[in-house]
Amino acid sequence: MSAQTMTRSADEVAKRRRPGRLKAYNSFRGVMIVAVVLIFLLPLVWMVMASFKTNVDIHDTTKSFIFTPILDNYSHVLGNDSYLNFVWNSFWVAFCATGISLLIGVPAAYSMSRFNMQKSALLVLLARIIPGVSLLVPWYYVFANLGWVGGYGVLIISHMFILIPISVYIMMSFFDSMPLELEEASLVDGLTPIGAFLRILLPLSVPGIATAGILSFIFSWNNFMFALVLSGSNTKTLPVAVFDFVSYASIDWGAIMAAACIMTLPIIVVALFAQKYIVSGLTAGATKG
């Protein structure tokens, strides 16, 4: 048998094996995708179903999927006049903290990216790594002496401690992916460095800004620890309001699930409509070089 015939036979065998391997790979990938989706969706599905159950039905395993839905939990939550105020508090704190963090973080990220300020970037990363719980006691002591505890300002400042590093590191990778020729061409055309940043780079960085803003808003909206310690009765946010359904003697699971669904719905809507910005912003700079 000639070498050419042997090579042709080996190629034919490889071609026959390839569809089987590809089929096995596709089956394995499909199983893993389904498993991951179920792991992430099952808690959410259980939360939504529990919001339409009585407390007795929630603990009854025979009524996990087959039960008589009720709206009492949502009536109990939305019937509370203070709950809409809690929604406004969460929105206002998240909106202000996100906006101010972007105003500070975007120019800071541009400076660190263009001027190789590695030490400053390390300090920002250090602020992101420090556990927030370690700052609550000194923050409370300082803000209490200033008379700020219980106001919106202290919540916004505490959230900015985490939101600014998020904005800086997302935008740094985005600015790193932008070619320097854009700025050089704008300087040749007569723009100042600040003008080049405002008129050229900033409009091009909208996807990154949207990503940083969305992720920052989600973190601030969901934050529980800072609001629990630093908020007051008039500035209480939604995560703390959900915790109010836990009492010493009992836990109103149905109301907690209903309140959690109401709190989660805006975030899901924002994430769905802004998905393309999140993906493009998080992958910016990944192919640099």
Rank of each mutant, 00 (worst) to 15 (best):
A3P: 00
Q4P: 02
T5V: 08
T5D: 15
A10I: 09
R17I: 07
R17M: 01
G20Y: 00
Y25M: 12
F28V: 11
V31R: 12
V36T: 10
V37Y: 03
L38P: 05
L38H: 05
F40D: 09
F40G: 10
L42G: 01
K53C: 09
T61Q: 13
T61V: 13
T61I: 15
T62W: 02
K63V: 00
S75N: 13
V77L: 02
L84A: 03
N85T: 13
F86E: 06
A97M: 04
A97F: 05
G99L: 10
N116R: 15
L122K: 04
V124A: 14
P131G: 02
L135K: 04
L135Y: 07
V137D: 04
W139E: 13
W139P: 00
W139I: 12
V149W: 13
G150I: 06
G151M: 08
Y152W: 07
G153E: 09
M160H: 12
M160Q: 11
I164N: 11
I164K: 13
I170G: 00
E183T: 14
D189M: 10
P193R: 12
A196Y: 03
L198W: 12
M225V: 14
G232K: 02
N234C: 01
V240K: 09
A249F: 10
A255D: 11
I262D: 05
L265Y: 06
I268V: 14
Y277P: 00
L282A: 07
K288M: 13
